[in-house]
């Protein structure tokens, strides 16, 4: 495959992963992936990267910070236990 084809594919990869690429673009990417090992690895590892971030535990607002937020807004009377 020509390198410029790989670069072109790279531009459309997020749309492809998010299911937002057109059928025509999807078909083009799928044809390219069948023959291009580098791009196949690229798609796999980019997809895995996205999945890892979707599964990453989200930091929580600490309870003492939540209490201080209510205090700063003079809303302590409305602070309920979590």
């Amino acid at each position: 495959m020509k390198p410029e084809t790989c670069e072109h594919l790279l531009d459309d990869l997020s749309d492809f992963l998010d299911g937002e690429a057109s059928e025509e673009v999807c078909a083009e990417i799928e044809r390219h992936l069948a023959d291009c090992e580098n791009c196949r690895v690229m798609v796999d590892t980019l997809h895995k990267t996205v999945l890892l971030y979707h599964e990453l535990p989200q930091p929580e607002l600490p309870e003492d910070a939540r209490q201080r937020l209510y205090q700063s807004l003079d809303l302590e009377a409305y602070l309920t236990a979590k």
């Binding site: 992963l17 299911g19 090992e37 997809h47």
Partner: peptide, 22 residues
């Protein structure tokens, strides 16, 4: 390159569906 590492290769359809579901 790791030509021998195919154990988590996604087909194009799988890639799209899995990502959207997540």
């Amino acid at each position: 390159m790791n030509a021998g590492c195919f154990c988590l290769h996604f087909t194009a359809s799988q890639v799209r569906v899995t990502t959207i579901q997540n």
